[in-house]
Simulated scan of single mutants.
Amino acid sequence: MTARFHALQPGARLSDRVAAELEDAIRSGRLQAGERLPTEAALAAQFAVSRTVVREAVSRLKSLGLVHARQGSGVYVREAGIAPLAFDSRHAVFKAAVIQVVEVRRALEAEAAALAAQRRTAAGLRRIHKVAQALEQAVAAGGDGAREDVALHRCIAEAARNPFLLDTLQYLSRFLQGATRVTRANEAWRTDFARQVRQEHARIVRAIEAGDAAAARRAAHTHMDNAIARIEQAAPAFWQQQGQVLASALVDEVKTGLVLKQ
């Protein structure tokens, strides 16, 4: 084994960082084509992370076509072959996929917020506030808050008390969560983006709490519009690093489950 890895320090989403470290080892030649990756247990020990984190990271490498699994043998580095598509082409595909999913979220979550404002209960509001606080704590601790962000929007949908809406969101959850991971990672790159998101979430929650359906719908719709604008403004460096790893997994999901209309 030619490549050795070191424990990661707390910060951004660990699986993204593990995937980026492994990808760099492959592209730099420290991990050669045909070479077997260390086992999950070995990588988890080297990076000082859980095996679940390693599994997620390796899954992203598979979606990038950098490694493949051999039944009963392990995971191996693929032949490098011809260089990948130019960055601008990958960038366009990744950005389009994320924006298209956010457009779906905009339609569903604006209505969910409006219904939540009309139908919220004291217990539902307490859950929304609790999850919103958990989101703030996750970001303050150095995380991207993606899981907590999804949970917040899920609580709002639950407050709408429409089982068909919940079922639709559950059906689309793999796409919605993938897009959220990309948008949250991008927003973590800039303090102004992060501040905007906090303010937008606060406006949605206030409107729901006040029982103002029109304001809640408007706030949720604006939140998604702004999420698209922030993706449009994402720095090239973001797409070259976290964005590429995160969005490639989403694109792979979309290709297997939906037809993207470019």
Rank of each mutant, 00 (worst) to 15 (best):
Ser59Arg: 14
Pro10Ser: 04
Leu176Trp: 02
Ala20His: 09
Gln133Trp: 06
Gln177Cys: 08
Gln9Trp: 06
Phe175Ala: 15
Arg119Pro: 01
Gln46Tyr: 06
Glu200Ser: 11
Ala113Gly: 07
Leu135Arg: 13
Pro84Cys: 09
Ala213Lys: 03
Gly243Leu: 06
Trp239Leu: 06
Ile99Pro: 02
Ser248Val: 02
Leu176Asn: 03
Gly11Ala: 12
Asp149Phe: 08
Asn162Ala: 06
Val98His: 04
Lys130Val: 03
Ala86His: 11
Tyr76Phe: 15
Glu79His: 10
Ala44Glu: 10
Ala194Ile: 00
Glu21Val: 05
Asp88Val: 13
His129Asp: 15
Ile26Gly: 02
Asp192Asn: 09
Met1His: 14
Ala237Thr: 15
Ala214Lys: 10
Val54Arg: 06
Leu108Phe: 05
Ala157His: 05
Ile82Ala: 13
Ala33Cys: 04
Leu8Ala: 09
Arg161Pro: 02
Phe47Cys: 12
Val254Tyr: 01
Leu258Ala: 14
Met224Arg: 10
Gly142Pro: 05
Thr121Cys: 08
Gln170Gly: 11
Gln32Thr: 12
Glu253Ile: 06
Ala213Gly: 01
Ala134Gly: 08
Val245Gly: 00
Ala134Thr: 04
Leu66Asp: 10
His221Trp: 11
His221Leu: 04
Leu66Arg: 13
Arg198Asp: 07
Gln71Phe: 12
Ala234Gly: 07
Ala42Glu: 15
Gly124Ala: 09
Asp212Tyr: 00
Asp225Lys: 03
Ala146Asp: 10
Phe94Arg: 12
Leu85Met: 12
Ala160Lys: 00
Ala235Gln: 15
Phe87Ile: 07
Ala219Met: 04
Ala141Glu: 12
Thr256Gly: 13
Leu22Ile: 10
Ile99Leu: 11
Asp24Ile: 06
Ala235Lys: 13
Ala110Ile: 03
Thr39Glu: 14
Ala138Gln: 10
Ala160Gln: 04
Ala249Cys: 04
Gly65Trp: 01
Ala202Leu: 05
Val54Tyr: 06
Gly145Asp: 04
Gly178Ala: 02
Arg60Ala: 15
Ala117Gln: 03
Leu176Met: 12
Val67Phe: 07
Ala48Thr: 14
Phe47Lys: 13
